[in-house]
Amino acid sequence: MEQHQEGNKIDRRKFLNSGIRATIVLGIGGLGFSLLKNLSAEELVWQLDASKCIQCGRCATSCIMTPSAVKCIHVYAMCGYCDLCGGFFRPETKQLTTAAENQLCPTSAIKRKFVEEPFFEYEIIENLCIGCGKCVKGCEAFGNGSLQLQVSHNLCKNCNQCAIARVCPADAFSRVPVKSPYLFKGFGNKKLVKPAEDDE
């Protein structure tokens, strides 16, 4: 009798459990279904919109990587090849020499190369750049804005929640499809004719 009751109890429990199991499976299925609209078969990666960035400096300090995965990228197509580069020299510089005290970049990550009178080419040395945005600010203020901060995808770990996105005051970070993983502003974009002001 005892045994029999025990057995009954177990059967009931088993039945109940399968019921709950089926409910959970349905629940997960329903969840997936309700998310169908949001789904993308493609991976998404973090990128900052260069036209929103205000070069606050947090990209250098907030990334989980040291140095930051955000780097200055030179969009050569926009560069004026100026001798007096607003991104290379400090504003108060008198003599246009490459002496460290004249340079805006705290890590001397910009290489200045003479091309021909009066033009110079500026190259960012990626592994020196810390993504502080000082040169970007200078170039935007005095030059063409060809120096731009971007998440460098060979370095970015694609965190589930980008630590910079959380603190970016300009709300410049978003997830973008892997196929077009950079958000340059102005001429650097594929649509080359689009002026920077219209990008917002």
Binding site: H74, Y76, E123, E126, S152, H153, N154, F184
Partner: peptide, 15 residues
């Protein structure tokens, strides 16, 4: 005849 270098945009991990 100086050639403008390409803008470097390292690709992310493939989808």
């Amino acid at each position: 005849g100086h050639q403008q270098p390409p803008t470097l945009t390292p690709a992310p991990r493939a989808s």
